[in-house]
Computed example of a mutant assay.
Amino acid sequence: MDIRVQGPGPTSPFLSARDLFETEHDLSLPVYVQLRDDPDERTWAGHYEDRHVLNISRQAASSAMARELALHEFSHMARYEQEHPSHVQSIEEVLYLALAGKRVERRKLAHCHQIANHMKDIYADDITLAVGPGEKLLAYLESSLAMALADRPETPSRPGLKRLSPSADPEITAVNAAFALALAERHDLVDDDHRLYDLARVAAMDAPGIDFEGFKRRFRELTHDPDSSGYRQVLVDATRSYVGGEGPAAD
């Protein structure tokens, strides 16, 4: 597996992630690591005809999560090379099938993309957690959800209702919580009394219109080796569940 770090910065996290990854997987294309100056730059993978590109901030590359972030992105690259349905399915096609004839808020369309990304992450982390430990990932999920729930608005959104999570988007926060808990349960990372359950319960209470248990079950029970048609239908169903309403089947 060929890794090429572009520019000055740490290399050991990427080499360490490569060593873990190569215990069970490999990539046919080289990986260019692009270190970016913006500390808020999201870590993400780009795929091209002759290479993969791992984009990561210098701050993230120097953090305690650097190896785990790199390993996660390598897993996305592997799924892309496998042409796994989760990584080649067009989200635009899914939105057309799921939402034809419906008027949907722009924010909810963005959330539908996030739901699709969660499913991609589930399949990537099936690789990540097969070759590396899950403790740091679990701590990251817990910390991220706790941060999302920390900013409680002073004024309830409706009389008599105390909102428990941020005012911005409690609905997608609930879906995010379902994803975090589903991933943890899928890989046996949590005991029944783990704090993640308490955090997820708060997120679900704040978005009663979201089928929290349904989303958790949908994420947790994703088929490990789906065909294209089956995966497309799962994504269509998840999209409809989030925005509401019925429509034509995917096939």
Rank of each mutant, 00 (worst) to 15 (best):
P10C: 03
A238M: 14
Y242C: 04
T173D: 15
A249V: 08
M1W: 00
A178S: 11
H47D: 09
L199W: 06
R195M: 08
H118T: 00
V243W: 12
S165H: 04
D37G: 13
D19H: 05
W44K: 15
R218V: 02
T11V: 10
T11P: 00
R107H: 14
D227E: 15
D126E: 13
L181P: 03
E41G: 01
D50T: 14
R232T: 13
H25R: 09
T128S: 15
V190D: 12
H76I: 05
H76V: 04
G209I: 03
G209M: 09
R152H: 02
R4E: 14
E185M: 06
L196F: 12
S28L: 11
A180Y: 14
R58L: 15
L138I: 07
P10M: 04
L71S: 10
A180K: 09
A146K: 12
Q114Y: 08
D40S: 10
I91P: 02
L99E: 09
E221C: 05
G46S: 14
L196V: 10
L183A: 03
V243T: 15
E135S: 15
A100M: 09
D206Y: 05
N176Y: 07
S62D: 10
D251Q: 11
A177N: 09
H25P: 01
L69M: 15
L129F: 02
S86P: 00
S165W: 03
D206W: 05
E93A: 10
A124I: 01
P156T: 01
L235A: 14
A180G: 10
F179Y: 15
V202Y: 02
A66F: 07
D126W: 01
R4Y: 04
L199N: 06
D227N: 14
L137V: 13
D2F: 02
V5M: 08
S241P: 00
D40L: 11
G101N: 09
P133R: 10
R240D: 11
L145Y: 12
L138T: 06
D225W: 01
E49S: 12
D151Y: 13
E93W: 13
L183T: 02
S86N: 02
G46F: 02
Q6P: 00
I56D: 08
M77T: 01
R232F: 04
E83I: 01
K102W: 01
P8N: 08
H72G: 07
A238L: 04
P153Q: 11
S167D: 13
H87I: 00
R4A: 09
L199P: 04
G7D: 11
A249T: 14
S62V: 01
S12P: 00
H87S: 14
R158T: 07
L145Q: 15
H25N: 10
E221R: 06
A64S: 14
R107N: 07
P13D: 07
T223S: 08
L137A: 06
D125F: 00
G244R: 07
I172M: 14
R106I: 13
L99W: 13
P156L: 00
A184Q: 08
P170C: 10
L35G: 05
S63A: 09
D198E: 13
S16D: 12
P85V: 03
F179S: 06
A17M: 02
E171M: 11
D211L: 06
A238C: 04
I56Q: 07
I210N: 03
G160A: 04
E49I: 06
A110L: 13
P170V: 09
A78W: 13
Y140P: 00
T239R: 06
D38H: 02
D225H: 03
L99Q: 12
E83G: 04
Y32H: 14
M65S: 12
A174M: 06
M205H: 07
A17T: 03
